[in-house]
Simulated scan of single mutants.
Amino acid sequence: MSVSRTLLGLLETGSTHGYDLKRAHDELFRSERPLAYGQVYATLARLLKNGLVSVEGSEAGDGPDRKRYNITDAGVTDLDDWLRTPERPAEYLQNTLYTKVLVALMSHRSAGEILDAQRAEHLGAMREYTRRKQTGDLADQLICDHALFHLEADLKWLDITASRLAELAEQPGLADR
């Protein structure tokens, strides 16, 4: 996720303070890890330096003055370009689980146990996303659907791999170790 572009998108709805941007981000995107205030202000400083946002003014508060940020025309253009550029699908050709299966086979450990443990982990995550989807608003339902579809694909891979373990163990390079 691009924090800078996300903040630009939030600013496009109207000028605001960094504190309010952080709150809006965490509320809308409900990440497992909320944005840190330091990350928000560091990102705003970069956007300001690059001419994508401007400071509309500042207000006195209990602590330091609160700057009100506004998106610039260059920021709108940057955001528009980012939104129109398709995302490259994630590469799944080398991931940790695949590596664990091969290492287990090479070291004569049970790759089946690794796959079974991972299947249980995926099913637990699916139950959690399903619960969250049932109680969430539309935005929560959409992100949970995204996660559930990816978990379903992973489960299919786990099943196919489990059915091929004996054949995979006979592959040159694995069988010799």
Rank of each mutant, 00 (worst) to 15 (best):
R46K: 12
M1A: 13
V40T: 04
E59R: 13
R131S: 12
R131Y: 10
E12W: 14
P34A: 03
A162P: 02
A45C: 11
R23E: 00
L174A: 06
W157L: 04
D140V: 05
L148M: 09
L52P: 03
A139K: 03
E59G: 04
K133M: 15
L123S: 06
G14T: 02
A139N: 04
E121Y: 07
K133W: 15
A36G: 13
A117C: 14
G112H: 10
L115V: 01
L102C: 10
T161S: 04
A90E: 05
G18L: 06
W157P: 00
D137E: 12
L83A: 15
V55K: 11
L44I: 12
T72W: 08
I71G: 03
L52S: 02
P86F: 01
E87K: 09
E113G: 09
Y41F: 15
H25F: 15
E27L: 06
A42T: 07
I160P: 01
R23K: 10
S58G: 04
E121I: 02
A175S: 05
P64R: 13
A125K: 12
E113H: 09
T135Y: 04
A117K: 15
R109V: 05
T161L: 01
E87R: 12
T16Q: 08
L158Q: 01
K49D: 13
A45G: 12
L123C: 11
T6Q: 03
L138Y: 12
A162L: 07
L158A: 02
R23P: 05
S58R: 14
W82I: 03
L52A: 06
T6G: 06
K22H: 05
G124I: 03
A104H: 06
G9M: 02
V53T: 15
A162F: 04
E152R: 07
L52T: 00
L123Y: 07
N50Q: 07
